[in-house]
Design a protein around this nucleic acid. Structure first.
Length: 572
RNA sequence: CGGGACGUAGCUCAGCCUGGUAGAGCACUUGGUUUGGGACCAAGACGUCGCAGGUUCAAAUCCUGUCGUCCCGACCA
């Protein structure tokens, strides 16, 4: 490819819309352009990299035994109603109407379609296992698209769906995908690691997310360097000890706390009740039902855990008005000891189990209760792990201190079970002649997000440093004179022709630009290897080889092609 | 949906407070000089100042509304 015939609109300055580095580089290196918020056009260079990632994904999915299909992006709402997600996924579903005013949904994912396909096509255990995948555009009505391709309204996803005859077989399918994902992200040149994850609205029993460590990521990951435990903070647990038992009085004692409505205020004089001896009382509305939630004063409720434990589809903090109507007091004076309506469930965090001599609100503005014992004074409906892990807590497996870091989620694997196959009737006849629902798994990779994650991880002050496997071009030839009859250009053309013939992906910067412009552009775009050809070195019969981010070496002109192939072979 | 910031040339921004001829740098066009890390000189082209109302003799500037973008939070398959 000749640069002058291509389209690489590089920018010296970052557009104001970009905040994080990878987003700025996407725009500056001429990989994408924004159409509007959350919607991007891939330019030639960005598309080449995208295609390379797709090829890696296809190779590994095929190797893992999955078969490629392509499903419609426009889908009938009926199947979404059948699975129940027309309601539960309502907020992210884009909807459209046709001329007959019939409604359609734009696919955010394809469990419904693939399960409908399986329902029609799979009749016997002899057809199992099978794993379908596709690489296609997905649509999600994100509340807040951000960071370029990281969270967009429309993006490219690889989604796969496995169908198995038994739970054990489904776990084997899950494991195959898990291993394939590790290979895929490694091949993309990404530092990555799997973490235990919550299954969310998609449902299922077992789940891992593949994370790329990055400060700009949207996920917090809890991990243990000693034993390798790693989990999304939404799911993570620790070995933190329960609340210490104390000498407890015979009954709770009410005391006046005028104006005190925070844990912190109560921890100060004249009350001086440490946060770890307080019970924090939170009121949530989960699927229209009020819930009382108790966590220790120094803990934070983990809303994802709350949703997971209760199976709620939607949950939100109650408003002060709702709270007053329920308990007769305002936030800051709430407790679960007295005035708790019989129909309201009390969910308490495990860390409070057996705790006594605690202080909590009296459900009367301006008053608290001390000497409260959980179990004796508070009727807990159910105990759950509901708290959010913090850094430094002992690992549940090995007791070493846990750490927390930010990361980008690039892949997610779920064991789904029979949730969709039952609802959409994807059943098969087993060897014993009985009809059983397929045991499913689903597996996603954010392809466009992965592209940006590579940039986020592979860069320096001058621009992108593409891993060879996903670089838009492997080699950039930079002749410093472009007149057709110049020795420099003639050699550049010769090397270009030889490399091209050898199957190397090479771009020839044949623009009549000053050297500085060409060097800056090559660095910004991030080609793994640049061949510099100038009059100075050519006078000695030499050309320059400059790996991006590495040191420049001089080689004999006639050896250049061989050296380049050596370089590429060593990196492949 | 709450909080905040910003919409002026293709891009980055100034001008707005204190109303009075629409600006700079980069990019672009032409000519010349340059030519090993984003050149220089000269000439040029490019704008309904996001949009709609209002105030005023006069609005980029003040007021109201609206749309859009970005950030934080909420939310998030």
């Amino acid at each position: 490819m000749r640069w002058s015939h291509y389209f690489i609109p590089t920018l010296k300055e970052s557009p104001a819309e970009a905040e994080i580095l990878s987003h700025k580089l996407l725009l500056r290196a001429g990989l994408v352009r924004k159409l509007t918020g959350g919607l991007y056009t891939f330019l030639p260079l960005g598309l080449r990299t995208l295609r390379k990632i797709e090829v890696i994904i296809r190779e590994e999915m095929n190797r893992a035994g999955a078969v490629e299909v392509l499903m419609p992006a426009l889908q009938p709402p009926e199947i979404w109603q059948q699975s129940g997600r027309y309601e539960t996924a309502r907020d992210v579903l884009y909807k459209a109407r046709d001329r007959a005013n019939k409604e359609w949904v734009l696919s955010p994912t394809a469990e419904e379609v693939i399960t409908t396909l399986a329902a029609g096509e799979i009749a016997s255990y002899r057809q199992l296992p099978v794993n379908f995948y596709q690489i296609s555009v997905k649509f999600r009505d994100e509340i807040r698209p951000r960071f370029g391709l990281m969270r967009a309204k429309e993006f490219i996803m690889k989604d796969a769906y496995s169908f198995d005859a038994s739970d054990e077989a489904a776990m084997a399918s899950y494991r195959r995908m898990y291993d394939a994902y590790t290979r895929i992200f490694n091949r993309c040149g990404l530092k990555n690691f799997p973490v235990e994850a919550d299954t969310g609205v998609i449902g299922g029993s077992h789940s891992h997310e593949f994370m790329v460590p990055a400060e700009t990521g949207e996920n917090d990951v809890v991990y243990c360097e000693a034993c390798g435990y790693a989990a999304n903070i939404e799911k993570a647990t620790s070995g933190i000890p329960a609340t210490a038992a104390r000498e407890a009085g015979p009954a709770p004692e009410k005391f006046a706390t005028p104006g005190v409505v925070t844990i912190e205020a109560l921890s100060k004089a004249p009350y001086s009740v440490p946060a770890n001896r307080q019970v924090k009382t939170l009121i949530y509305i989960a699927d229209s039902q009020p819930l009382i939630i108790l966590v220790r004063g120094d803990d934070q409720l983990n809303e994802t855990k709350l949703m997971a434990r209760t199976g709620a589809v939607q949950a939100r903090p109650a408003t002060p008005e709702e709270i007053f109507a329920l308990l007769g007091a305002h936030p800051g004076s709430l407790g679960a000891v007295v005035n708790v309506p019989a129909h309201v469930k009390v969910l308490a965090d495990e860390r409070l189990r057996g705790a006594n001599d605690m202080t909590t609100g009296a459900n009367e503005d301006g008053f608290h209760l001390k000497g409260v014992s959980l179990g004796r004074d508070i009727k807990v409906t159910t105990w759950f792990d509901l708290r959010t892990v913090t850094a430094g807590e002992p690992c549940a497996k090995c007791a070493k201190p846990l750490k927390i870091r930010r990361a980008i989620e690039v892949g997610h694997v779920f064991k789904l079970g029979t949730k969709y196959s039952e609802k959409l009737n994807a059943c098969f006849l087993d060897a014993d002649g009985k009809s059983k629902p397929c045991v499913m798994g689903c597996y996603g990779i954010g392809v466009t997000r992965t592209l940006q994650a590579v940039i986020e991880q592979c860069n320096d002050k001058d621009g992108i440093i593409w891993p060879l496997a996903v670089a838009p071009f492997q080699v950039c030839i930079t002749p410093l004179a472009v007149a057709k009859d110049s020795a420099v250009m003639q050699l550049a053309e010769k090397i270009y022709a030889e490399l091209t013939a050898a199957g190397v992906e090479v771009i020839l910067d044949d623009r009549d630009e000053r050297p500085g412009v060409k060097f800056k552009d090559a660095d910004l775009v991030g080609f793994p290897l640049r061949i510099g050809i100038g009059e100075k070195s050519l006078a000695k019969g030499e050309v320059e080889l400059k790996p991006r981010g590495g040191a420049l070496t001089l080689v004999k002109a006639e050896e250049a092609v061989a050296k380049v192939r050596e370089f590429l072979a060593g990196k492949a």
